[in-house]
């Protein structure tokens, strides 16, 4: 058995961009003729993945982070056999995903963001989950047991007989996660696991992934926009931008590699625009975040810099020169969010 459960090698994926025809041009039964004509008018392609390669070890928790439209979901769907790559090789647990998608799907479970929308509103929560368990090949008795168990895990057992339309948006996301937990498979692919969840339940889900799934030896690949989530959960993190993986490693490795510096935090009253412009021109600064509170009276500056002491002194000098009142100053280690901002760039914020 290979030590790598997922192998992604030089994967390319592009989507054709077709000219669309607007609403109101539908011709009923002849609509398909119009659709075919317009679909022949290609307006180029959207390159979602451009030669992505990485490997995920067994029992590893692996995060994929990146700005909107970077290719995270496309990558997860390619691994989950819901998209065919144009080029490249994807293997899950020794199975070629492109050549044997059904065999590969038996070894993984994918939870997409917004998957709650795909649950059948005419079936109850437990019936929906029983159906998914049956699709994974479990017998009816086992399907019922599993549905009950996963509803307990996601805290929805009291709503087992309700249909999905009666759930709040957070509960729907939990239901989507329940679908992910229904099968005993070695690999879970989760697209944004905690999006739309309240902080308490988001923590419960993170803890479940970190402790229970780790204990059961399950490999998890997840995408997220929350850097603290990636840092807390993942053994390794891949940062993807414009369809390419631009950084890969543990949180500490990424911090060491991409942020040769520290974070200077300063809280002050009355920080004026001129002062901010001067601060931004300090040479050693890699990245600066400005947060205003109390209608702009209080400002928090979070500065990632190569030379923390000198930057702190320079910033304090500037602020005092502009008659700002310093409330607090500190030097700390950079977080993954700082790394992300340094790598991905300001334009993606």
């Amino acid at each position: 058995m290979s030590k790598d459960i997922v192998i992604v090698n030089n994967v390319y994926k592009s989507y054709p961009k077709y000219k669309r025809f607007g609403p109101g041009t539908c011709l009923g039964q002849a609509h398909w003729i119009l659709a075919t004509i317009f679909r022949m008018r290609k307006e180029g392609v959207v390159e979602a993945l451009k030669g992505v390669s990485f490997r995920v070890k067994r029992k590893e928790i692996f995060a994929i982070v990146g700005p909107n439209g970077a290719g995270k979901t496309t990558l997860v769907k390619c691994i989950g056999a819901l998209l065919l790559p144009d080029k490249g090789y994807i293997e899950v647990d020794g199975v070629n995903v492109v050549e044997e998608p059904l065999k590969a799907k038996k070894r993984m479970n994918l939870v997409g963001s917004g998957y709650w929308g795909g649950f059948d509103w005419s079936l109850s929560l437990e019936e929906n989950l029983q159906l998914f368990a049956l699709l994974y090949g479990y017998d009816f008795k086992e399907a019922k047991r599993r549905a009950k168990e996963v509803l307990d895990i996601v805290g929805l057992s009291h709503k087992a007989k309700d249909n999905p339309t009666k759930l709040s948006s957070g509960e729907r996301q939990r239901l989507a996660l329940a679908k992910g937990f229904i099968a005993d498979v070695p690999l879970y692919l989760i697209d944004e696991p905690t999006v739309g969840l309240d902080p308490v339940f988001a923590k419960q889900i993170r803890d479940y992934i970190k402790t229970e799934m780790k204990k059961r030896g399950i490999t998890v690949i997840f995408t997220t926009h929350f850097m603290h989530e990636a840092e807390y959960l993942a053994d390794r993190i891949a940062i993807i931008k414009d369809g390419k993986i631009i950084a890969l490693g543990t949180a500490d490795e990424l911090k060491a590699k991409f942020t040769r510096g520290k974070v200077v935090e300063i809280k002050a009253y009355n920080v004026y625009e001129d002062a901010l412009n001067k601060i931004k021109s300090i040479e050693d600064i890699i990245h600066i975040d400005v947060f205003h509170r109390s209608y702009g009276a209080e400002t928090l500056l979070r500065i990632l810099t190569r030379n923390p002491l000198e930057t702190l002194n320079n910033v304090l000098d500037i602020l005092l020169m502009y008659s700002s009142t310093i409330l607090y100053a500190n030097i700390s280690e950079p977080t993954l969010e700082d790394v992300y901002r340094a790598i991905v760039g300001e334009e993606y914020g």
Binding site: L82, K105, G118, D120
Partner: peptide
């Protein structure tokens, strides 16, 4: 249109 097709296809079913 009911958005069920993708979630069903994510399962190992012919």
């Amino acid at each position: 249109w009911g958005r069920r097709i993708e979630i069903l296809f994510s399962s190992p079913v012919n």
